[in-house]
Design a protein around this nucleic acid. Structure first.
Length: 438
RNA sequence: CGGAGUGUGGCUCAGUCUGGUAGAGCACCGCGUUCGGGACGCGGGGGUCGCAGGUUCGAAUCCUGCCACUCCGACCA
């Protein structure tokens, strides 16, 4: 992409509505624009990062055996009456009436819709286990939206729904999502800790929140220090038997404020291992048995021919919230520092003298080579003050900057800078291109 | 929903107390000089001061109502 023909509305000053660092940086770096409280437009750079995060989530869901579908944002009130949640959900649900006076709603979650899809087609235990997920916009009319995309009213969520014949199998499905989440967040450079969690109004018996630690987190969390440093299991695991991996994580104390038991924490965890911190919830997994399948009559025939309600779980990842969470975890004075896996571009080529024949030619050469190598370069060829370019590239957090100017071309010593560390490498254009491609 | 606060060009804000016909910096446009980490000079465009009503010869400014947004709390897969 050439910046002279792109849309990158960066701001020098912070809009007054933003209080926390990720929100400020998202506005200043031109990732999002607020349209109303908790409702945002996604600008080109923000959308690129959102899509990369979404793709990582998708790949790890598929690796764990989940199948992608796409459910509508608008749902029927009648389905929610079947489950009994229509009246319970309260003012957080955005209710809509169509021209036929039919009652609709903007989905805050999709248990009802997916259960309706399931019961229409799946009739036998032989079709299980089944895990259907979708990545779709949700709307919850929060009393107080805040912190930018971290607590918006409209947000992008991955929600997976597992269907199993009994509780033992449902726990295996739960474990697959548990491990998939560990791998998902690790790929984004995040250290996420699974914690015992309150099941809230959705109900259920078994639930973990995945929390990343950040000073601006919304909830207080308590856990054993070892959990923070534990490496993700990775893709090469036995997906049919993950109990040992899950036990290793759940054997150590970890709980959010609502579930915290101080006495147990102190009994189970040596004082030097106790960690109390603020956390951001980026994922949440639930097993809730037959809470929806029973009232909605989602049943399958077992080997004995008898019908029984299917055992379900639901498993969410806050995809749009993850942008804020990653920025909270990775930034400095100058701006965002994207992990390479989610960076909007792989490398920025900065042309210090647009219009200078030699600089333009060297930039074109670098751009072509890096594009060919799949490094997704962003060419900053804007004819503005050079200082501004450096600041913009730092602000939007591109992992590498290749600086091309007349002095460097004359001396043969160009500069390559790594955003995360500030480390600089100098060399010929060819040498730096080779280094980036490696 | 309880408490607090803010609405003035795209952004950050001054002006409101003490009423007199709207300003600064940044951004934007033109010309010139510049150019290796957010340049400088000169010229220029852009605002029914959140909305509605009231008081007044006159309202960004005073009064009333409403709306939006932000913060603290409660709430929250």
């Amino acid at each position: 992409m050439r910046l002279s023909r792109y849309f990158l509305p960066t701001l020098k000053e912070t809009p007054s509505e933003a209080q926390i660092v990720s929100h400020r940086l998202m506005l200043r770096a031109g990732l999002i624009r607020q349209e109303a409280a908790g409702i945002y437009a996604w600008l080109p750079i923000g959308l690129r990062v959102l899509k990369k995060i979404e793709q990582i989530v998708r790949e790890e869901q598929q690796r764990a055996g989940a199948v992608e579908i796409l459910m509508p944002t608008i749902q029927l009130a009648d389905l929610w009456r079947e489950s009994g949640r229509y009246d319970d959900y309260g003012e957080e649900m955005l209710r809509i009436t169509d021209r036929h006076k039919r009652e609709l709603l903007y989905g805050p979650t999709a248990e009802e819709v997916v259960t309706d899809i399931f019961r229409a087609y799946v009739k036998s235990y032989r079709d299980l286990p089944l895990n259907l997920f979708n990545i779709q916009w949700k709307f919850r009319d929060e009393r107080r939206p805040r912190f930018g995309v971290m607590r918006g009213r409209e947000f992008l969520m991955k929600d997976a729904y597992t269907f199993d014949v009994d509780e033992a199998n449902a726990r295996k499905a739960y474990n697959r999502m548990f491990v998939a989440y560990l791998n998902t967040f690790a790929r984004m450079g995040l250290k996420a800790v699974p914690m015992r969690a309150d099941t809230g109004p959705i109900g259920g018996e078994l639930s973990h929140e995945f929390i990343i630690l950040a000073d601006t987190g919304e909830s207080q969390v308590f856990c054993h220090r070892a959990l923070v440093e534990m490496a993700a299991p990775g893709p090469d695991v036995d997906w049919d038997d993950l109990q040992a991996i899950v036990d290793e994580r759940t054997g150590l104390y970890a709980a959010t404020e609502e579930m915290h038991e101080p006495a147990r924490f102190e009994a189970e965890t040596a004082e030097s291992d106790r960690l109390s911190a603020r956390g951001i919830e980026v994922g949440h997994i639930f097993y809730f048995g037959t809470k929806y399948s029973k009232p909605m009559n989602a049943v399958v025939a077992g080997p004995d021919g008898k019908e029984a309600p299917v055992h379900m779980g639901s498993h969410g990842v806050g995809v749009s919230r993850l942008l804020g969470a990653i920025i909270e975890a990775s930034h400095d004075e100058a701006g965002i520092i994207w992990p390479e896996s989610v960076a909007p571009f792989g490398v920025a080529i900065v042309n210090l003298r647009p219009g200078d024949e030699a600089c333009d030619a060297a930039c074109e050469q670098a751009y072509a080579a890096l594009s060919k190598a799949g490094l997704d370069p962003l060419l900053d060829d804007r004819d503005i003050r050079p200082g501004g370019k450096f600041a913009d590239m730092d602000l939007i957090g591109i992992p590498w900057q290749l600086v091309i100017g007349p002095k460097g071309l004359a001396s043969g010593e160009l500069e390559l800078k790594r955003r995360a560390t500030g480390e600089k490498v100098t060399g010929s254009l060819e040498a730096l291109l080779n280094r980036l491609s490696a």
